[in-house]
């Protein structure tokens, strides 16, 4: 499959990616500040959804607690920036390392469970993280959260880059998200990624191929959680103030919708889904108070009519066309 597809689609895909990147680089030149801010948040959510989907679409594990790693990345970075030192690089590292550690600890227990039990245990841990962020006032600011997180300059050697401006932070986000998405894409195409897909398809059988299935699940869990942490780390200085609601389970449900909308079995599906989700929410909530009716109806329609998501549907059509059926 890889062979034929790479010959026919390889070039087109290269041009597609190049074109998309060019468009993303040009965004601040053509769009208003309001839209650039919106695009920055969209990029962060794209990373959140794509890293979530490594566990969901690729490994077949539905987590209801991924807001935990997102918010630990955000709180770690935010706390470091506002209380310790205004070094963006160190702050990001702190947030990411913390989400890595927490993902490892939680994942260690969760990957032993399957299906709904897995989902409920991730929910349980996610809500414990929420309770801690909410109630540990002295550290996290309690229900008010962290307010006034600085967005400092970024210095490498002699060069200093300004990130407090809207386009500045947009570009920082674009670079970080770009690198992370590239890494995730490579992981999805690696031997490790193929093992994850086979775990999704039939996790009991994988053990009988001589593969220590749980370690691979844990690996996927940790990678997924850590990159959610990167998204959170970017989110804290972007929003400037964060509150415990980013760790509530409704936040964990967002990447689930995004992945489903775009398609869980196509790598870029959740990216499309995240963009669409945010776009729809912006449009519909500007037009009516009752945006959940629309979201609910869309969700029901997708499950019944388009379970492969938008990209899944398109790629099925393309494949069918190529096979001449």
């Amino acid at each position: 499959m890889e062979k034929s597809r790479s010959i026919i689609w390889g070039k087109n895909r290269f041009y597609g990616v190049a074109l998309a990147l060019l468009a993303l680089v040009l965004v601040p030149f053509f769009l208003s500040d309001f839209l650039v801010v919106f695009a920055t948040e969209m990029l962060i959510m794209v990373l959140f959804a794509l890293s979530f989907n490594l566990l969901f679409g690729y490994t077949g594990l539905l987590s209801f607690g991924h807001a935990a790693y997102f918010s630990i990345g955000a709180y770690g970075t935010g706390l470091f920036l506002s209380r310790v030192s205004p070094s963006l690089l160190l702050a990001f590292l702190i947030g990411i390392v913390f989400s890595f550690i927490v993902a490892f600890l939680i994942g260690y227990f969760c990957v032993r469970l399957d299906e709904i039990y897995f989902a409920m245990l991730t929910l349980a841990f996610g809500m414990m993280v929420h309770a801690i962020l909410w109630k540990w006032d002295s550290l996290t600011g309690g229900a008010d959260g962290l307010v006034g997180i600085p967005r400092p300059k970024f210095s490498i050697l002699l060069a200093t880059i300004e990130f407090s401006s809207i386009p500045g932070y947009y570009y920082l986000t674009l670079v970080v998200v770009g690198i992370c998405v590239f890494i995730l894409w490579r992981v999805s195409r690696s031997p490790f990624g193929l093992v994850l897909k086979s775990i999704r398809e039939n996790h009991e059988r994988v053990e009988f191929l001589g593969i220590a299935m749980r370690r691979y699940r844990l690996g996927a869990f940790v990678i997924s959680g850590t990159f959610c942490g990167v998204a959170g780390a970017l989110f804290a200085p972007f929003e400037r103030s964060i509150a415990p609601d980013i760790s509530f389970w409704t936040k964990s449900a967002e990447p689930v919708f995004m992945s489903l909308l775009g398609g869980t079995k196509v790598f870029f599906g959740p990216a499309v889904g995240a963009s669409l989700f945010m776009y729809l929410r912006e449009i519909i909530s500007g037009y009516t108070e009752l945006w959940m009716i629309y979201l609910g109806a869309i969700l029901i329609a997708f499950v019944i009519f388009l379970p492969g998501g938008i990209l899944g549907f398109i790629s099925d059509k393309l494949n069918a066309g190529r096979r001449g059926t």
Partner: peptide, 27 residues
């Protein structure tokens, strides 16, 4: 129409119903 689909999709479908009903009750 969706008996036998994966549990994940059952959760999403029925969660869609929750969202719908919540806003209907609000209405």
């Amino acid at each position: 129409p969706v008996y036998g689909i994966h549990i994940t999709f059952q959760l999403l479908l029925t969660f869609g119903i929750i969202l719908l009903v919540t806003d209907l009750v609000r209405l």
